[in-house]
Amino acid sequence: MPEKTAATAVSAETEAGATAPDDAPAAVTAKPEKARSLWSDAWGDLRRNPLFLISAGLILVLLAISAFPGLFTSASPRDADLANHYLQHPNWGHFFAPDWFGYDGQGRSIYARVIYGARASIMVGVGVTALVTIIGTIIGMAAGYFGGLTDSLLSRVTDIFMGIPFLLGALVVLTGFENRSIWVVILALVFLGWTVIARVARGAVINIKQADYVVAAKALGASTSRILLRHVLPNALAPIIVVATIALGGYIAAEATLSFLGVGLAEPTVSWGVDVSSGREQLRNAPHVLIIPSVMVSITVLAFLMFGDAVRNALDPKLR
């Protein structure tokens, strides 16, 4: 494997004329530049996209909150003080104070619950996406690359799972569990969600396996695993990443929905979905109990959707 130094590529620009008279330096794209991989090109695009900057900023904040909720509030999400704070309304001026968003029907600080609830949502979103991507990519790649019977078999299985309505399926699966920890919810969503990625991966791989560079690798005598890992996977990754980031928001929404319906997470787990669910009882006299966690879900989902959209534009400039 050749040594990689960015410096050589830069100096190549200046010396090109001397060493290779047939190839004038003007030939290569623009300015003195480093080796520009397609990924770094995409990154260059992203950095200049305000949509990306806003959504990435939001996501970073959300990640920080879910990693270190204690840094953002001194109150505990489980401390209930019914006597003093029953359904107390928000105090919009009290930034970051426990009463900023008011209190819920058990006298718990909604601000603290929103902060601590982020972890459940982010964990479900990230966890489901990671697992779904791994499983879907493996299945989709196998189906797309090997074709024939393997493809028929795997594609039919994918179709069967796809035929199950996502939310209804999750509802049925989760009803079967007594103790629904966050992992149970994640696995239930993965069980029903991998098909989307599998389909995308299969389509991408079918295109890629016909490309001449794959044929060239075969002609060199490359092993199947080498072709899959060095040639097929890196090129199939872009569409998979795009679909995965966009789906992430959907999984967060799904968790909230399931928790609201009472089959997802449940007390004492702190989660936005759980809070939305408990907020509906007092909707008339204390709408903030329901609205604030709902808004958090919406903002999070929106952030990931925007993020996914920006990534798509960067990775697939043809769509623009």
């Binding site: 080796a35 397609l38 560079y213 044929v215 060239a216 490359a222």
Partner: peptide, 25 residues
Amino acid sequence: FQDPYTSLNPRMTVGDIIGEPFDIH
């Protein structure tokens, strides 16, 4: 190959592309 645009893996450097035969053999 005919098409110089599809016969080189876009995600590999030129060094890796030309060096791949040595990895395989």
